[in-house]
Computed example of a mutant assay.
Amino acid sequence: MAERERHTSPPKADRAPRRTGAAEAAACASERLAALITHRAEGVSAVCRVEDGWRVSVDVVEVARIPDTTSLLATYEVDIDERGELREYRRVRRYRRGSADDC
């Protein structure tokens, strides 16, 4: 019994802050952005580790149209910290669903 007590976890205050993984960062960024800009997230096109968290590129439908291929989408860069809290966001691109990137 004494052996078990010796190997217990430290109190919560002594633990290091939980780090967010790429998949969780993508989910957090999508949810937080959608709540702020009131457009639904279409998907995540990039996740990049930065010094103090994550930068996630989230694609959203800004103007839904019929047919769907004429809808206007936008890509936002969303920066979140290690805990998944939003630090900043910015729209970096706006485009029609059916358009291709210039190569």
Rank of each mutant, 00 (worst) to 15 (best):
D102R: 12
A2S: 14
S57K: 04
A46T: 07
H39D: 04
L86N: 04
M1G: 14
P17N: 10
R97G: 11
W54G: 00
E82H: 13
G84I: 01
R49A: 12
T69I: 12
E62C: 14
R83V: 11
R93G: 06
V47E: 08
A35K: 03
R93H: 09
L86Q: 06
A64T: 00
R15T: 08
E3G: 07
A22G: 15
H7T: 12
P11R: 03
E88T: 14
A41S: 15
V61A: 05
R87F: 11
L72Q: 03
R40H: 15
E77S: 00
S30A: 14
H39K: 02
G21L: 07
A13L: 15
A2C: 10
D52F: 03
R97P: 04
S9T: 05
S71G: 09
V44C: 06
L36Y: 04
P17W: 07
E42N: 07
E82N: 14
V47C: 11
P11K: 02
S30R: 05
E42S: 10
V60I: 11
A25V: 11
H39T: 01
E62T: 15
E82Y: 09
L73T: 03
L86V: 06
E24L: 13
E31A: 11
Y95D: 11
V61D: 05
V60F: 04
A23I: 12
